[in-house]
Each structure stands twice: as C-alpha cells, then as structure tokens.
C-alpha cells in the first residue's frame, strides 16, 4: 500500500498537467481574494464568501471526479491493472494507496496555490481575515477528499476513460448544477409533510450539499435557512458538530470504498 501511495503521488507530481492546477487555483483564488478588497476584512458570510463557495463547488468536484476516475480507468485501459493483478496486492490496499497518493498530490498543489494567493492578497493590501481563509481552505480540502473518493468509485464502475468522463460530468451536473431543480421537481410529487424530512435526507446524501451547509452553519449563518433547519443548525454548532462531520467523512469513505472493492473484485476475475 505504501508503494502504491508513493507511486501514485510521484506519477501525479511528475505530470505536466499537475502544474496547470497550480496556475488554475492560483489564478482563481487571487481573483477571488481581489473581490474581498471591497469588504475590508469581513470574515462572515457575505456575497464574496457566497461567490467563492459557489466557484469552488463548480470547479473542485468536477476536476476531482475526473482525476479520480481517470486514475483507475487509465490503468484499466493501459493494462497496468492486469499486470497489478498478478502481484499479491489486495484490492483495498490498491484503492487506499491510490487514494492516499491522489489526495497528497492534490492537497499539496491546492495548498501551495492557496497560500500564494493569500500572500499576494495580503501584499496588495487586501484585508483578509485568517479564520475566514482557513474556513474556505478547510472546505476546499474536504471537497477534494469527498470527490476524489467518488471519482475513484466511478473509476471502478466505468469500463473506459470515455465512460468515466461522461459519468463524472453527469454526476457533477446532477449533484451541483441541477440538484435544487431536481429536488424541487421530485419533492413536488410527495405530500407536503414529507418534504422537510426528505430535504434533510437529501442533504446528507449529497456530500457537496452537506459540506456547503456545514460550512455556512459554522460561519454562524445557519439562521438564513429558516425555521425548518433550526435543529440542524444547533446540532452542527454544538460541540458534536465536528464529530458529526468526522463521522460523516468516515462513513462516506467506508460506504463508497466497500462498493468500489466489490466492483473491483468482480472485474479482477473477469
């Protein structure tokens, strides 16, 4: 597993496209922090915060899904997987190794560009609040974590890279872009009293939504969601909030990787 982790990390950092991410994130954050100039160090939930969160939700999940799913389907197509199958490597070790390598590489490049943008922002005299920045940073890291896992899972299901790309885009579109529209359409069919519990269920099922709401609540802005979510807001803001997030992350990786392992087992013996 350690070797898998190292090899994944090393192949990632040696790709030229890897450094495109450095430029991309650096550019995006420098521009976003520039917006904060008018806000003079506001650390709460403002329009700039909303914009940054939305742009992160547009970009990060899509890229992470594609990177995650490609890293597996690539090996399937190139025959590396068949080669690996001849080695005594267990499937869980393979998956976790891959995941560890990917997240090390992605988190590193993201951290680097985020920190550079922070420095640029500070040097150009924009007042940035530290807690605000760290909140956004943590949110991004969690998004990377969640969608890399989902990407790896797609990789185990999809047969080719092309299919992996299509599935990634479709899932991204569903979870991020069309999510409210789809929910409003579906929940229009159920009786009114069920809408409230189903919305909460949907919030847990969609990790992007869960993270977004968790972040906004931690920013002391949960009241904006109205009376239906007062309980959720208090739960997340209480001491249990962070352990819930932690538990959610563990449960999430457990469920998706169990499924992924199942699918990979089947393919191994095909």
């Amino acid at each position: 597993m350690r070797n898998l982790w190292l090899s994944e990390w090393k192949t990632m950092t040696r790709q030229r496209s890897y450094f495109l991410f450095l430029i991309l994130w650096g550019l995006v954050f420098s521009l976003l922090f520039l917006l904060e100039r008018n806000n003079a160090g506001l650390s709460s939930f403002t329009n700039v915060t909303g914009t940054i969160v939305n742009i992160l939700l547009y970009l990060l999940p899509l890229f992470m899904l594609i990177i995650g799913s490609f890293s597996i389907t690539n090996e399937m197509e190139s025959g590396q997987w068949q080669l690996l199958c001849t080695y005594p490597v267990s499937i869980p070790a393979y998956l976790f190794g891959k995941f560890a390598g990917l997240i090390t590489a992605q988190a590193a490049v993201f951290t680097l560009s985020f920190a550079i943008s922070m420095a640029i922002g500070m040097l150009s005299g924009i007042q940035l609040s530290l807690s605000w920045l760290l909140g956004i940073y943590l949110f991004s890291l969690l998004l990377i974590y969640v969608f890399l896992i989902l990407g790896l899972f797609i990789g185990t299901v999809a047969k080719t890279r092309w299919k992996a790309l299509m599935t990634s885009v479709a899932i991204w579109f569903f979870l991020i872009m069309i999510w409210p529209t789809a929910l409003i359409a579906i929940l229009g069919l159920v009786p009114y009293p069920l809408i409230d519990p189903l919305m909460k269920l949907a919030m847990v099922l969609n990790p992007a939504e869960f993270l977004r709401i968790f972040l906004i609540i931690q920013w002391d802005s949960g009241a904006v969601f109205g009376g239906s979510y007062d309980g959720v807001v208090h739960l997340f803001q209480s001491g249990a909030g962070w352990s819930i997030l932690f538990g959610y992350m563990i449960a999430y990786v457990f469920v998706l990787f169990s499924l992924a392992i199942l699918f990979l087992r089947r393919r191994r013996f095909l």
Partner: peptide, 8 residues
Amino acid sequence: QLFFQHPG
C-alpha cells in the same frame, strides 16, 4: 430555503 445561494 436550504437552497439559499446554492450554486445550482
């Protein structure tokens, strides 16, 4: 109201 400022 949960969709407040949702990217979608």
